[in-house]
């Protein structure tokens, strides 16, 4: 008369399954159809080399050809510095914006590049930073540089600048939300205890921000790592900015080797995954609870 008298609904509810759970179903379907299945299919495909042979042949091919495996390093050499630079810009700006009255306005201006899209930014940069662009011409007119001495497009720096422009708003917004999540009373308390601003940053803000910055790093990194349009438009896609997504693109649409492209995509995913795992495990070294002064 005790347990089994309960209706099915109550028993399910006790296990956390109720009407609200059903609301997750559409998202789950999308996730399976658009992410899990394609991923699984890609993984399976990558083990089926186009020309037959051993199931790891695609991977062996990738890691035995420097033209291919160097793309890992090329991509990391772009994505890492870009992410770090974005974070280094975003933290001080977020600290300042946090205290501002017209926060909305400034945030809107800073976030604007997100709405432009990478291609538009690339187009603008080609004109502005190009050999006949205003920027270079102004630099040359100062007499400090001769024409052709500095080049900011169609090379590493073109892609770098474009990734900073398009990545910064995202990094900044995330950082701002973490920074404003810290109770201002904590800083005041530290000040009353004799901590100067540098000490307050080091002992209070930084440890509380680290977990958030680790997440921000991961998301910004993944974004920068999968760069394709700006690497092609603003970089030197045959050489210094031949990023891994270009290799995948060429395999898929120039050599029509889908299995190889899948293998490259899997390797790309694995590298991202490894970096994210490393960042998140560093995060575990820090306090991760609420960043408010406990109760109140």
């Amino acid at each position: 008369m005790t347990g089994h008298a309960l209706p099915l609904r109550s028993r399910l509810a006790a296990k956390g399954l109720d009407g609200v759970t059903l609301m997750a179903v559409p998202a789950a379907i999308f996730l399976i159809a658009l992410f899990i299945y394609p991923f699984g299919y890609g993984l399976w495909l990558s083990f089926k080399p186009k020309d037959g042979g051993w199931f790891l042949a695609n991977y062996v091919k990738f890691f035995s050809d420097p033209f291919l495996y160097d793309t890992i390093y090329t991509t990391l050499a772009l994505a890492f510095p870009v992410t770090i630079v974005n974070l280094l810009f975003a933290v001080p700006v977020a600290f300042r914006v946090r205290l501002m009255k017209h926060q909305r306005l400034l945030t809107t201006i800073l976030v604007l590049p997100i709405t432009l899209g990478t291609v538009l930014v690339a187009e603008g940069m080609l004109n502005y930073f190009g050999p006949q662009g205003w920027f270079i011409r102004t630099l040359v007119s100062t007499g400090l540089f001769s024409p052709g001495q500095i080049k900011l497009v169609n090379n590493y720096w073109g892609v770098f600048i474009s990734l900073v422009i398009t990545g910064f708003p995202f990094t900044f917004l995330l950082t701002l939300s973490y920074v404003s999540g810290i109770d201002p009373a904590l800083e005041q308390a530290a000040a009353t205890l004799g901590a100067r601003s540098a000490a307050r940053f080091r002992h209070i803000f930084l440890p509380l921000l680290m977990p958030g910055l680790a997440i921000t790093f991961c998301l910004s990194f993944v974004q920068a790592y999968s760069v394709l349009p700006s690497a092609v438009l603003l970089g030197a896609p045959a050489g210094p900015t031949r990023v891994i997504s270009i290799a995948a693109y060429q395999a898929a649409f120039e050599q029509y080797d889908r299995p190889m492209a899948s293998a490259i995509a899997m390797i790309m995913g694995f590298v991202q995954f490894a970096v994210v795992v490393a960042a998140l495990s560093l995060r575990n070294l820090f306090y991760r609870g609420p960043a408010a002064g406990a109760k109140g």
Binding site: L193, G194, R196, Y287, K295
Partner: peptide, 29 residues
């Protein structure tokens, strides 16, 4: 500035440093 006055302050929200132990909180000053 606040940090040079050397006064103790107890905040309404307590403003304890959540990532430090009780001992580290008390020893911070």
């Amino acid at each position: 500035p606040t940090e040079d006055r050397g006064f103790g302050m107890v905040f309404q929200s307590y403003a304890l440093f959540p990532h430090m132990t009780v001992r580290a909180n008390i020893g911070f000053g």
